Computed example of a mutant assay.
Amino acid sequence: MASPSHRRPVRGRRPGLLPLIALAAVVLLVSLVVALRPGGEPDTVHTATEPSSSPRASVTPTAPKAKAKAGAEAKARPTPSVPSPSPARTTARPSARPSPVASPRPAPRAVSDSAPLAGRIKPKVTYQGVATHYDAADGDGACLYGPSPDLMVAAMNTTDYETSKACGAYILVRAAGGASVTVRVTNECPLPCAPGQLDLSKQAFAKLAGLSAGRIPVTWSLLSPSTSDTVSIRYKIGSSRHWCGIQALGHRNPLARLEVSTGNGWSRLTRTEYNYFLSPDGTGCGGPLRLTDIYGEQLTVDGIAVRPDAVQPTRVQFARH
């Protein structure tokens, strides 16, 4: 009987041990699951890196920057919905360029159809008068240019001569029958020559009518001819560093001003009826010169020494109009 009673307790302990082991295994498994589940410490890291799905993390930090940028570019970008800044810059450039494009336009050429410094004789105007003729000899006259290379010259009536302002002007003269001739003003025709009257050399008059006609009605207008010549400068006889008279020759357009450099700017000289510009106290004699035609174009000439009665060529010429 001892054996059976001994075997019973042994059988009774086996069933009780298995549940304990199973329970321990379950507890261990549960602890591991709890420790590793998303709610543990790794979950905290995940929450910090999850802003892409969270409205606060993705929108709140970036939205203020987008608004600030839009505010800064509001002037350059008319449509805030455009995301890329490059279209905004592309749009802004053309809007800023029209003014520079308009200003580089021929500022010098803006006066091509007008002559703000012209006197009585203006471009694009047709004048009516009469033509007579005289013996021009070598073509010299009141303008004191000296002998002319050709004898297609004219003397301008005193009114339109305008204290030698007409000197050097090229004039297209037309007769009633259609004949025409181009002459250069080198002389003055005193009274009784009337305003509008041209006294032509015999050679020029003969291009319009026979010399026996003596006096014919004409129309005439200012020209700006083509030429390969450049302007020349001449100092009057008796000129020095203390007094000088300066003359410009060979200019394509009528000359409006001649100025001398004073070191602090430009000083305009007075023009005489014999077509020299005078510096009575010697200011600027032998220094840089600035020439201005009736269209407002300016030419600067340097290196012209005071050499009385010597024709000194330059490298400049006024533009054709």
Rank of each mutant, 00 (worst) to 15 (best):
102 A>M: 11
140 D>V: 06
76 A>G: 03
226 S>C: 01
100 P>D: 08
54 S>P: 04
263 G>K: 06
190 P>V: 04
234 R>K: 14
244 C>H: 02
207 K>E: 08
82 V>C: 00
61 P>I: 13
75 K>V: 14
41 E>D: 07
53 S>C: 05
272 T>E: 11
222 L>K: 00
151 L>W: 04
122 K>A: 03
83 P>K: 14
296 G>S: 08
249 L>W: 12
318 F>G: 03
142 A>C: 03
251 H>F: 08
74 A>W: 04
314 T>N: 01
296 G>A: 06
68 A>R: 04
184 R>D: 00
264 N>L: 13
134 Y>N: 09
117 L>T: 00
155 A>I: 08
151 L>C: 01
182 T>W: 03
199 D>W: 10
160 D>N: 08
254 P>C: 02
165 K>Y: 08
233 I>Q: 02
260 V>I: 12
228 S>Y: 07
321 H>E: 04
234 R>S: 10
205 F>Q: 00
286 G>P: 04
159 T>V: 15
91 T>P: 00
105 R>H: 06
263 G>A: 05
19 P>H: 13
9 P>L: 10
96 A>C: 08
80 P>V: 12
112 S>L: 06
246 I>V: 15
284 G>Y: 11
32 L>D: 06
140 D>W: 12
172 L>C: 04
137 A>P: 01
220 W>I: 07
223 L>A: 08
124 K>Q: 09
156 M>Y: 09
113 D>H: 11
253 N>H: 01
90 T>D: 12
269 L>N: 03
138 D>N: 15
